[in-house]
Design a protein around this nucleic acid. Sequence first.
DNA 1: ACAGACCATGGACCATTGTCAATGGTTTTG
DNA 2: CAAAACCATTGACAATGGTCCATGGTCTGT
Lengths: 138, 138
Amino acid sequence: MRIGELAKKAEVSRDTIRFYERHGLIHSDVDAAAGNGYRIYPEDAVLTLEVIKDAQAAGLSIADITLIMGQLAAQTAEDFDAQAFLDRKIEEVNARMQAARRFLDLLERTKHALAHAPQDGLDALKEAGAGNGNRTRN
Amino acid sequence: MRIGELAKKAEVSRDTIRFYERHGLIHSDVDAAAGNGYRIYPEDAVLTLEVIKDAQAAGLSIADITLIMGQLAAQTAEDFDAQAFLDRKIEEVNARMQAARRFLDLLERTKHALAHAPQDGLDALKEAGAGNGNRTRN
DNA sequence: ACAGACCATGGACCATTGTCAATGGTTTTG
DNA sequence: CAAAACCATTGACAATGGTCCATGGTCTGT
């Protein structure tokens, strides 16, 4: 499909697609038959773009995602590196999710505090870390 | 405490603390007694910095965090706005966590695929979205 | 055939989130 | 007391993740 269709389906801008392509995250090839220089993207590019969104939400950089999407394909034998890399990323994402969970709790406590005692909505923030046994410190 | 101590305790750089302060995320006042222009930070700034880290991991921008940390304190009566704002942020964080969870699954499947059949570690990526009933599309 | 929508390429531009360097003063410590 | 470590302020620099613009070609509907 052409870039506009892909952009619409994946709900990203054409420019974003081109940006990702420049960074090796997705690929296309020129429509040789048509000879107009237009690029053709495979159907699964939609899926790829959605995975990229998820990866970004998980806090990974474009560079990381490129490694995962691309370098993994080119496993010549350094699967050790790939495994280690994946393990590191998995840990990172887990850590980030735990932090996000803590923050979500805080937001919710703040919201309820605000609903029940509007005069000091900051109490939840002030007592952050108390009341939830989740925090694993250092 | 002074900036260096805070930086050490919260494990961020002095410059980061100053950056946050310029953006209204944390506050200090000049040590009037000493008269040397040094700034003094309250003890709970350590906690504040940790909350900021969590919030960032949850995907919030400095501007958002500033709103939550600061504007909430100044509830003059527009608690409606504050509630709505919190609700929006809570939803955002939830969405991001779900995305992160999806991506984490993908990473783990990729890892196992790589361990068991090194010749095509990309299979997990290719079948992304299949096999996990989590995805709520559009 | 002509307007309006689409495409490519290249480079400029932007916001966000810091980091670093320069300059000059203060405190601590051996 | 002198060096090392700390502090403040200002402003430049940098990486990341896009977005926008200019230019020029192509396609599609009427």
